[in-house]
Amino acid sequence: MLKKFILSAALVLAAAFASNAQEKHRIYINDFNVAEGVSEADAANIRQAVIDAIHKSQKFELATSDMESALSQEINRRSSEAAMHDAATRNEILMAAGCQYVMSGDIIKCSLNKSTLDDGTVMYECVLSYSITVAEVATSTTVASQRFDSNNGLFSGSWNSSTSPETATANAIKHIEKDIEGFIIENFPTEGTIIPMDYEVKKDKMLSCYIDLGTSHGVKEGDLFSVLAAKVVIGQVTYSEIGKIKVEEVVSDNISRCKVTKGQKELFSAMESYMALDEASQSQQPIKIKAEAKTDVLGAMGKLGL
Rank of each mutant, 00 (worst) to 15 (best):
I27V: 09
Y199L: 07
V247R: 14
S104P: 01
C258N: 04
S115D: 14
V127Q: 15
T163F: 01
M84Q: 11
V134E: 12
G105L: 06
E61T: 15
G157Y: 06
D223W: 00
V12E: 12
G120Q: 05
I176F: 02
S80R: 09
V137P: 03
A276N: 07
N113H: 11
E186Y: 05
T193W: 12
R78E: 08
R78G: 01
I176C: 03
M275G: 00
L267F: 01
S283F: 08
A14F: 00
G214T: 13
D149L: 13
R90F: 05
F148C: 06
T261G: 04
D278H: 07
T133S: 15
N30S: 14
A53V: 06
D296N: 15
R47H: 14
S273R: 01
R47C: 05
S281W: 01
D106C: 01
N76G: 03
A87T: 13
I255T: 12
T190S: 14
E272M: 10
A293F: 06
P286L: 07
A87E: 11
S69N: 02
V233K: 03
V227D: 02
H25N: 12
T261E: 04
V34C: 02
F268P: 00
L112S: 04
C110P: 02
T238M: 07
K56R: 11
P196F: 14
E249S: 15
I195Q: 07
I180P: 04
S131R: 15
M1S: 14
C126D: 04
K246I: 08
Y130E: 09
A44I: 05
A83V: 13
V122G: 05
A144Q: 10
M275Q: 13
A82I: 12
G153Y: 11
Y274K: 07
L267K: 01
T64L: 08
V247M: 08
E74T: 09
S273Q: 01
I234D: 02
Q236I: 05
P189H: 10
K56S: 14
Y210S: 12
L306K: 11
I242S: 02
C209P: 03
S273T: 06
M206W: 02
A172I: 03
A135F: 12
M123D: 08
M84L: 15
A97Y: 00
D204P: 00
A18D: 12
N171D: 08
F17L: 09
E181S: 14
Y210I: 10
S269E: 13
A15I: 13
